[in-house]
Nucleic acid binder design. Structure first.
Lengths: 212, 212
DNA sequence: CACTAAGATGAGTGGAAACTCATCTTTATA
DNA sequence: TATAAAGATGAGTTTCCACTCATCTTAGTG
């Protein structure tokens, strides 16, 4: 689950092209290039997680152990690199959500997911920073929409199960989620505070008859 | 309430210095200088409110109708300018809070204050942006502490009045507040969404016996 | 092993933004 | 009104960072 998908790229290739006469099609990617691309992604995720999206591309290159030109060969723009990270992060989150929707009791799935996402945000400034600072009108918009729809499903299930108030709309949940994710990366947020803060929000979301 | 306090400065002068022999003390400030300082502050507040703290100092100068050197004469650093704005903003907020603590019913004062602060945040990226992006270990720390203490008082009053659960601590309230302020400046936040989001949080804060 | 194209390299370029300073302008006072 | 000091000006300096490109290196193939 924690391994990055090796077939993901920003060229949008699907499968291999055995046929020639395909101008501008995706080439198979050499072995070392593949390795470097992964190193860069990993390094970028670490660096941006620590210092936020304003960290320099050179630092990413250094951490990955490659020259700066290599980074720009794989990701022609800093934005593109950021997008690739976002895509991976959101993809993983999305998978986790689908799993949760299947396994967990339908009433609690939403709470579990929100908790996990906030936990992630505390470690990864990237998601949050990107959503906030950079324009959200990226190509990533589709991934965001996927995530949004997924949360909508979890919410609907919880409402059917009677654990969440019926008058709560998806917008508010998203708003609360992004807000708390933002807050989670401030100094002074530890596990305890996160838990207590979420408890308040969850209490606010819960249907009166389902409160403990 | 909306007028800026003319006697506020970052030199920390209190009253006039009629006595001489005050090395390094605050000079009376010439008339045009005073006017420019206010213009710069107003312009900076507007610009940073629109574009966030990453807006350039030159844009502030342009909006204020002065040269860039003038800005740096009054505020030797961009940080200093940001701090001055923060100080003013927090001061106003603090006054509003004191008023609220006196006037309003003790049980609802906290809710009213939080609502107002979030409303402000939606318009002023500065407060939020600063608290988030720049280090909070500024000289502004004292102003922040003042605000924090004030909120603590409002919270305590509400708990005494029985409208807020006893196990809620100040940390969580602050966390929620900053988080929602962060969220409030995202695209798509309108009055309705803000109100609904706050309603959820308030429901979570309210004591069981005080719920409507 | 030889060869070639894909890939890696890193000094260099361009631009943006914070900050400086020599020079000119204005206020306040004698 | 004359004068001196406070203040304003804006071109220039410095720093930093995204991005480029001519050149060298290496993986894959016959």
């Amino acid at each position: 689950m924690t391994t990055t998908n090796p077939s993901s790229g920003d060229t949008g290739d699907t499968g291999e092209t055995g046929k020639k006469g395909d101008p501008g099609g995706a080439r198979p990617l050499r072995a070392d290039a593949q390795r470097n691309r992964e190193r860069i992604l990993a390094a970028a995720e670490a660096v941006f997680a620590e210092k936020g999206p304003s960290a320099s591309t050179e630092e990413v290159a250094a951490r990955a152990g490659v020259a700066i030109g290599t980074v720009f060969k794989h990701f022609p723009t800093k934005q593109a690199l950021l997008q690739a990270i976002m895509k991976g992060l959101l993809g993983r989150l999305d998978g986790e959500m689908a799993e949760l929707a299947a396994d967990e009791a339908p009433g609690e799935a939403l709470f579990t997911f929100v908790t996990r996402m906030v936990e992630q945000a505390a470690r990864k400034r990237t998601v949050v920073g990107l959503l906030a600072e950079t324009g959200v009108d990226l190509q990533v918009a589709s991934s965001v929409r996927m995530l949004r729809d997924g949360i909508g499903t979890l919410l609907a299930r919880s409402q059917e199960a009677g654990t969440v108030r019926d008058d709560v709309r998806l917008d508010e949940v998203i708003a609360l989620l992004t807000g708390i994710c933002q807050g989670a990366l401030h100094a002074g947020w530890d596990d305890d505070l996160r838990q207590r803060t979420l408890a308040i929000v969850f209490a606010g979301l819960r249907a009166p008859e389902a409160r403990r």
